[in-house]
Design a protein around this nucleic acid. Structure first.
Length: 278
DNA sequence: ATGCCCGCATTCTGCGGA
């Protein structure tokens, strides 16, 4: 069977593996050289971007197309902004923004249909969950409501029983092991019990945290602050997550962080974080 | 206890980020 699949892939020219990446770029204009470099390295099939910090008309679509990727984006001047890139194909937009608060104009959720690398399709969403600081206050309340709204959409996706990946910057430190210092972050919105509970409810609904599944123990960071020498001290935390629907989790091969990218010149404070699906 | 460092918008500085 395995040989047959390999033979078929050889004949049809399909990859048996899909690398799906989530990458908070912290400003796509400032980060364009790093992003193009990353795409040129060539093993990312789908890239979900967050924090574009750019309006729709200033999204560098031509550069990304020249790198061999189709793109759908949901920009916003100065803040937020998410996109989905697909190598050698155009993502098909499904959902732009979460239901429940019509007055919410933040660009934080973009859901697309993309090739699954095996002749079929899958669903990939790029999401940027609100930071929620300072707490308590309206920003923290907005974060918790947004988590609830995400859960509603995620539940609809589960009922479709499709392979799906919810990839993005969740701004949630799920567990004490996911930060360099519980003490330093104790009062932060990223690791409040309410934030964690919202994230945990997604897992209880049937979503799989890909990184924790592949690496059940140990410290894995996806973010290192620009300040206080956090990168040099390896003082980070894990807030970028890829949640897999059951049919995507069945295909899980590996997950990790392209940590070296955080050490490059003019890097984002987040590193590209990825999952490989069969 | 606070700010450090960054990107963005528009400066002689503020806001948001995490």
């Amino acid at each position: 069977m395995r040989l047959w699949l390999q033979l078929r892939d050889l004949i049809v020219g399909l990859d048996s593996d899909m690398k799906i990446v989530t990458y908070n770029v912290n400003g796509i204009k400032a980060r364009l050289p790093r992003l193009l470099e990353y795409l040129a390295e060539g093993d990312a099939d789908v890239v979900c971007l967050q924090e574009l910090k750019a309006s729709d008309d200033s999204f560098p679509a031509a550069d990304i197309e020249a790198a061999g990727y189709g793109a759908v984006w949901h920009g916003q001047k100065s803040w937020n902004g998410v996109a989905v890139l697909t190598r050698g194909a155009q993502p098909i937009e499904r959902v732009r923004g979460l239901a429940g608060e019509p007055e919410d104009e933040h660009s934080r959720y973009l859901e697309c249909e993309v090739p699954d690398g095996n002749g079929g399709t899958m669903v990939v969403a790029s999401l940027y969950l609100p930071n929620g600081n300072p707490r308590p206050g309206p920003k923290f309340d907005y974060k918790l409501r947004w988590l609830d709204r995400l859960r509603s959409r995620a539940t609809e996706l589960l009922s479709e029983e499709v392979p799906a990946v919810l990839a993005g910057d969740y701004n949630v430190i799920p567990h004490d092991d996911d930060t360099f210092s519980v003490r330093a972050m104790a009062e932060d919105a990223l690791m409040q019990p309410e934030s964690r509970a919202g994230y945990r409810r997604l897992l209880a609904d049937g979503w799989t945290d890909a990184l924790r599944t592949r690496h059940p123990a140990g410290k894995i960071w996806t973010f290192w602050d620009y300040q206080a020498g956090a990168w040099q001290r390896d003082a980070g935390f894990r807030i970028d997550h890829l949640l897999l629907s059951p049919r995507a989790a069945d295909r899980l091969v590996d997950a990790g962080v392209d940590k070296a990218h955080r050490g490059r010149e003019k890097a984002s404070d987040h590193a590209p974080t990825w999952v490989r699906l069969r």
